[in-house]
């Protein structure tokens, strides 16, 4: 909002185009999205190195607290979200300090809260971004995504 696309970090620029496949069906979209994420992040990292731009010191992936009936661990990737989430426009202020605190982040998120439009549910409502009830595996994954954060420098 305060700057034109050419001033975005390289990751954001790469993200703008591949967002369109979302208009297909939900499952396909989610699969596609996962794929796009990986590609976009790779492009972002490559561009970042190539352009010699300042490396983003994004926080490492965050593993959320797991409830007993959870189908799998939820691991949040800053890299994916910075690169892809259109509502943030690449700015930290899209998600901070509301709904997510920066300095004292909470590791605890429930589906009730999200369904009420809080926390992840603020964007993951099925319209702005994929809904939190759509596809369990979209978030509850067995594998870590730390591969991305390793490239981007890790925690401050």
């Amino acid at each position: 909002m305060r700057h034109s696309p050419d001033q975005h970090s390289p990751g954001e620029g790469a993200s703008s185009d591949p967002v369109s496949p979302r208009r297909t069906t939900r499952v396909r979209r989610n699969i596609l999205l996962n794929f796009v994420c990986v590609v976009a992040c790779a492009v972002a990292a490559a561009l970042g190195i190539g352009a010699g731009a300042a490396t983003l010191r994004l926080p490492p992936d965050i593993a959320y607290d797991r409830s007993p009936d959870s189908p799998g661990p939820v691991i949040f990737s800053h890299v994916n979200h910075v690169a892809l989430a259109p509502s943030t426009e690449g700015e930290c202020t899209g998600c901070h300090p509301e709904p997510f605190k920066m300095l004292k982040p909470s590791r605890h998120v429930t589906h009730d809260e999200m369904n009420a439009g809080k926390l992840c549910g603020t964007c993951h409502d099925g319209k702005t971004a994929s809904g939190v009830q759509d596809d369990c595996e979209h978030c509850h994954k067995a594998r870590s995504q730390s591969g991305y954060s390793a490239r981007t420098g890790g925690t401050p």
Partner: peptide, 9 residues
């Protein structure tokens, strides 16, 4: 890069 993290924090 104008991300506004400082403002949010």
């Amino acid at each position: 890069i104008g991300c506004g993290g400082c403002t949010a924090a």
